[in-house]
Simulated assay, not measured.
Amino acid sequence: MKKDHVFLMMVLPAFILFFIFHTYPALQGIFYSFTNFRGYGDWDFVGFINYFNVFQDGRALSAYGFTFQFAIVATLLVNMLSLFIAIGLNAKIKFRKTLRAMYFLPFILSVLIVSFIFQFMFTHMLPQLGQALDIDFLSRNILGNQNLAWIGVVIVAVWQSTAFNTLLYLAGLSTVDDQVYEAADIDGAGSWAKFWRLTFPLIAPFFTINMVVAMKNFLMAFDQIIGLTGGGPGRATESIALLIYRGGFEGGQFAYQSANAVIYFIVIVAISVIQLRILERKEVKG
């Protein structure tokens, strides 16, 4: 009984805080999504009208399109880059531990501060460098171009997220026995054959985790966009998270954006489940 009492005393405060600051606001948001609440004043129940309106809102559909485009590209790039770096850092090279620490530094920095720094670089430093070197592409501020601004957001997101994904891949590579590679060397397997036939299948569970977590995080992109473009130019880089924030807290659309948030939560869960199912099947086949 004493052990149960101690366990309860340790878990209960965390549970209460989680419920107050996470579960209760989420339930409250779901409740208000069925009303016409503006964030203040009186409100009435309107049923599923807010949900139907989301699918007819051109701005919301545009935000969904940008968010999916950004998340898919960033997820693929960050996983390819992280895996490449992890394999390099796992090799027997000098200053391996120092390099691991250096690659992890971007992850511990504030996303917003990093975004502001890159915003300054894209706006001032790179154009000046491009003009000095007479390179036309660098001479332009891509964040001011509706067709190219999303690329700047992807660059920053991938640069900062690579550290965490690399750490997970390093953990996966540490589970691979060196004797496996020794046997492959005896059989005359090349570097690509060893990676594709041995390394990748053995770290497939870590690849699955990285893909799911990275996709989920990029779908919820907010800080990078605020610091780099603010959703602009125009609404070219307006993500769903940014749209929900602005519409709900600045535009008097609290109930409407609550419905949007519920829909987006369902979308993220569905995408994560689909990813897990597909990638886990490939793990078994591999």
Rank of each mutant, 00 (worst) to 15 (best):
M1S: 13
K3Y: 14
M10Q: 05
M10T: 07
F18L: 11
F21L: 13
P25A: 07
P25G: 03
L27Q: 02
L27Y: 04
F31R: 05
G39D: 04
G39F: 01
V46S: 01
V46C: 08
G47I: 11
A60T: 02
S62P: 07
G65H: 10
T67E: 07
Q69D: 05
A71D: 03
T75E: 14
N79A: 04
G88Q: 08
G88I: 02
N90F: 11
R96G: 04
K97Q: 14
A101K: 05
Y103H: 04
P106W: 14
L109Q: 06
S110P: 00
F116E: 07
I117D: 07
L129T: 04
Q131G: 10
D136F: 12
S139T: 01
L143E: 12
L143S: 04
G144L: 06
G152I: 07
V154S: 11
S161C: 09
S161G: 15
A163M: 05
T166H: 00
V176S: 09
D177Y: 00
Q179P: 04
E182K: 04
I186R: 03
A193W: 12
K194S: 13
K194M: 14
K194D: 13
K194L: 13
W196A: 09
L198Q: 01
P201N: 08
I203C: 08
I203R: 01
F206K: 10
V213H: 05
M215K: 02
N217I: 11
L219Q: 09
L219Y: 09
A221P: 00
A221N: 06
F222C: 05
D223M: 03
I226M: 15
T229C: 00
G230H: 01
P233G: 09
R235A: 14
R235W: 09
L242C: 03
L243R: 04
Y245N: 04
Q253Y: 01
F254P: 01
A261I: 06
I263C: 03
Y264P: 06
F265I: 01
S272N: 08
L276H: 06
E280K: 02
K285L: 15
